[in-house]
Design a protein around this nucleic acid. Structure first.
Length: 559
RNA sequence: UGGGCCGUCGCCAAGUGGUAAGGCACCAGGUUUUGAUCCUGGCAUUCGUUGGUUCGAAUCCAGCCGGCCCAGCCA
């Protein structure tokens, strides 16, 4: 495990205020937190917020954070998810103190349940699910007591043990807390603590056929681990009285406190595991690590750095306010990080051939290009040049407006690092499509400036045809066309059909490393790119992580 | 309409009774061999709203308005 290299800012939030107060009052000596995912899916950007909060707070206050798997629902969980979660947390740069499963505590939890029964605070209910639902009441009407509510502790003990000993089928009985069927808080209307489930558990196998529920398990797991600050999302606010009830009625090694914060919501994206699962299973994306997915693994494949994700979590803050973050915020931290670290290269994604008529056929030469315009320590590389080159199709326009600074008939542009060229002729095929361009170059402009000092507005990128490496490039756009696909009745309607465009005619300069290269490139004027897992020397594949900011596109759009 | 929670600039967010930080976005300039980066300046007389307390209120009190969550043997 690596230690986090990412910085969390000292910006305050209400949770840090609480911790400051707890430390100052002596209520807490060492801050202990936990990140408690259920291993029933892959981690996404929303989890990253919780990870950064829990691990960040623990680190900043000199405490520690556990990675605890909240695995009390065996039918939905698997080791595949366990492994992916561990990998993602590590990749984000955090180290856990310990990595327990809630299922490791099943034995202790069972003991706590017996304790509750002996105190007359829990009972075995033999109603079926429908009866229970009916008797629970509604938001406005109180519930009614179960006919089994007054069973004696002895009978309950005997029945609960029989449940554990595999004497009943699924659903025959449940163990319930005996609280208050009239409570205005529905979570307090005798919540279910244990259910019978004959399922193989990824960690405990077939040891158990009864499984505790979240509400019973979570606070006790926190208490067993000595967690001081149990941070969860807003929807658990109504569960806090139950969390407290359980801890108040049982002797536990410590007394954690639950505090809730708002979960992350991001425009144009989904962060519901259920819906992400549908995207994967219905084949709308290639998998959990599809680069369009805002899963940690998808973002990693897309080319996000862990530092950019941590920076994002830092910049959005932590509050109790429901909010939706604009995509621009994520894009901004990504660009900021990538701009600093990306090695510059030239690549042409949508090529059009240019023949430089006055450049000798058998000649070639090399230009030195800086690998980073602001950081000389990145060094330089040699870029081959020859008579035939590729330029971007978008960099040529036959009838160009005045503000178009790129190539068009009769106009002169600078080839980055190389020469000035002027467009002499447009070659078209029978269908009238532009096939190639004939240009002339000014030998005096070698290196990109001319002795006469004449100005050229545009500088475009290029790749020597003779030296080019053929490659495939994946361009990505947001997966959804509406800002809040999650609220739509059917999010399928909002799926963006053009979220992945494959460009298979791309041309790379030879200095680009094609295989097993985890480092970000900036292909000048096109954006940030990373080689895909599947990239090979024979079939190079790169993913565009993010475009550059494009003020020309903005001008063009407003026309 | 029972209970819980939330409302500070287009989007986030600091602010904890002494006179509205910051980021993103946006706008206007400058530098630039990436229409990138970088730099400069602009961008809330007002904090959902109404009333009250106070010398003084985004901060305290009351009412109202708006939004979110809860009726799994999910987490």
């Amino acid at each position: 495990m690596s230690d986090s290299s990412a910085e969390t800012s000292d910006s305050s939030n209400f949770i840090r205020d609480i911790i400051d107060a707890d430390l100052a009052s002596g209520k807490v000596e060492k801050v202990i937190t936990r990140f408690p995912p259920e291993p029933n899916g892959y981690l996404h950007i929303g989890h990253a917020k919780s990870i950064c909060l829990n691990f960040g707070v623990a680190r900043d206050y000199g405490g520690y954070c556990n990675l605890r798997f909240d695995d009390t629902n065996p039918e939905k969980e698997s080791v595949e998810y366990v492994n992916s979660i561990r990998r993602d947390v590590e990749w984000l740069g955090f180290s856990w103190h310990s990595n327990p499963f809630a299922s490791d505590y099943f034995g202790q939890l069972y003991g706590y349940a017996l304790d509750l029964i002996r105190q007359g605070l829990a009972y075995v209910d033999s109603q079926n699910a429908d009866e229970m639902r009916e008797n629970r009441g509604t938001l406005t009407a109180p519930g009614v007591d179960s006919p089994y509510r007054e069973r004696s502790p002895e009978e309950n003990l005997q029945l609960f043990e029989a449940m554990k000993n595999d004497e009943y089928p699924d659903g025959a009985h449940v163990l319930r807390a005996k609280i208050d069927m009239q409570s205005p808080n529905i979570n307090m209307r005798d919540p279910v603590l244990y259910r019978i489930r004959h399922a193989t558990h990824h960690n405990t196998g077939d040891t158990w056929c009864i499984y505790p529920l979240y509400d019973f398990t979570h606070g006790l797991s926190d208490a067993i681990e000595g967690v001081t600050h149990s941070l969860c999302t807003l929807e658990f606010e109504d569960h806090r009285p139950l969390y407290d009830w359980i801890l108040d009625n049982l002797e536990t090694p410590s007394r954690p406190v639950q505090t809730e914060f708002a979960r992350l919501q991001l425009e144009y994206s989904l962060t519901s595991k259920r819906k992400l699962n549908m995207l994967v299973n219905e084949g709308h994306v290639s998998g959990w690590d599809d680069p369009r997915m805002l899963t940690i693994s998808g973002m990693r494949r897309r080319g996000y750095t862990p530092e950019s994700i941590v920076a994002f979590c830092d910049v959005i803050g932590v509050t109790k306010k429901y909010s939706t973050i604009e995509m621009g915020v994520l894009e901004n931290v990504l660009r900021e990080d990538l701009n600093k670290r990306a090695t510059r290269r030239m690549a042409v994604i949508n090529p059009i051939k240019v023949v430089i008529e006055n450049y000798p056929e058998d000649q070639e030469e090399y230009f030195s290009g800086a690998n980073h315009p602001q950081d000389p320590s990145y060094g330089t590389r040699e870029i081959p040049f020859s008579r035939e080159i590729y330029i971007e199709r978008d960099d040529f326009m036959e009838d160009a407006p005045r503000k178009f600074f790129r190539l068009s008939p009769g106009r002169e542009v600078r080839l980055r690092f190389a020469y000035y060229i002027t467009c002499k002729e447009v070659i078209k095929n029978d269908a009238g499509e532009i096939e190639s361009l004939v240009c002339s170059y000014d030998p005096e402009s070698r290196g990109g400036s001319s002795p006469d000092g004449r100005k050229v507005r545009g500088t475009i990128h290029w790749v020597s045809a003779r030296h080019a490496v053929n490659a495939t490039v994946n361009l990505y756009d947001r997966l959804f066309t509406t800002a809040n696909p999650g609220s739509a009745a059917d999010f399928h309607q909002a799926l963006n059909p053009d979220s992945n465009i494959v460009m298979d005619q791309a041309k790379f300069e030879p200095a680009i490393e094609l295989v097993d290269n985890p480092l970000a490139y900036q292909f000048e004027r096109l954006g940030y790119f990373i080689s895909d897992y599947d990239s090979t020397a024979q079939q190079p594949v790169f993913n565009r992580t993010m475009t550059l900011r494009d003020s020309w596109a903005k001008i063009e759009q407003s026309r």
